[in-house]
Amino acid sequence: MKTLVWVEHDGKAVKDATLSAVTAASKLGEAHLLVAGQGIDSVAQAAATIAGVGKVHVADDAAYAHALAENVAPLVVELMGHHDAFVAPATTTGKNIAPRVAAMLDVMQISDILSVEGADTFTRPIYAGNAIATVKTSDTKLVVTVRTTAFEKAAAEGGSAEIEKVASTGDKGLSTFAGEEIAKSERPELTSAKVIVSGGRAFGSSEQFHSLLDPLADKLGAGVGASRAAVDAGYAPNDYQVGQTGKIVAPEVYIAIGISGAIQHLAGMKDSKTIIAINKDEDAPIFQVADIGLVGDLFKIVPELTEKL
């Protein structure tokens, strides 16, 4: 089987999510990559060195500059003429493009796979991860998105794949990019951080959220996450949200502070290796999944913890 993997990038570098998707794709067959964008030579070069990759297709055109699904999907459909599976990481970009591709190919997408059980069989979470379904498809072409925390990253070095330019399928004129607000942070990205400190509604204000959590995160070299309640209340931007509808993370250590542990939040972090919870309510559901719990007032505990680290 020949697979086509969507390369997630920021115009300069390949993102880690791609490496997990390559691992998943390699379980199906030979992994070929698709790098789409504008002025992306360095991304294509980096993609070609990923271990185990057969070929890198590069589509360099203004129409792909912002990965608009309306323009990218026809390109993927064209390349699927000689590939058997389209594999994308379940990032917001992957989730935006892949189902459009699937519909155009008349196949059912398999979302957010956790494992490859065979050429047509996968496991995937349903009900916010409260159940794991094993699913088998009868479609001959596959469209799959990959839960990146469930697959090891392929080695970023060691490969030397051939790079092949592909012709643009053009701008379909349905949509245009009108701007973005991308948060810039010195901290590790949530989806690749080894340690995450995450805050909930209990912080009470944006000032307290940041003045308490940022120094702690700095001490631990951690990424900062948040519950939906904290994001809704404006304590943290939307890209901090961990959960069923936010980011799925699985760091070595996840420290949940002032977070109750609603199932929608657990859905995003319960595969973390070690979970630490700090909460003043000893019956908070978060303690049912925490490896280490500390009952008490975060306004006292967090400064003391930061101080003693």
């Binding site: 608009l68 970009t93 990019f177 973005e180 607000e181 890209d239 980011k247």
Partner: peptide
């Protein structure tokens, strides 16, 4: 989106 917010027309 993963990095923050994007606006499309």
């Amino acid at each position: 989106v993963d990095g923050g917010l994007e606006t499309d027309d």
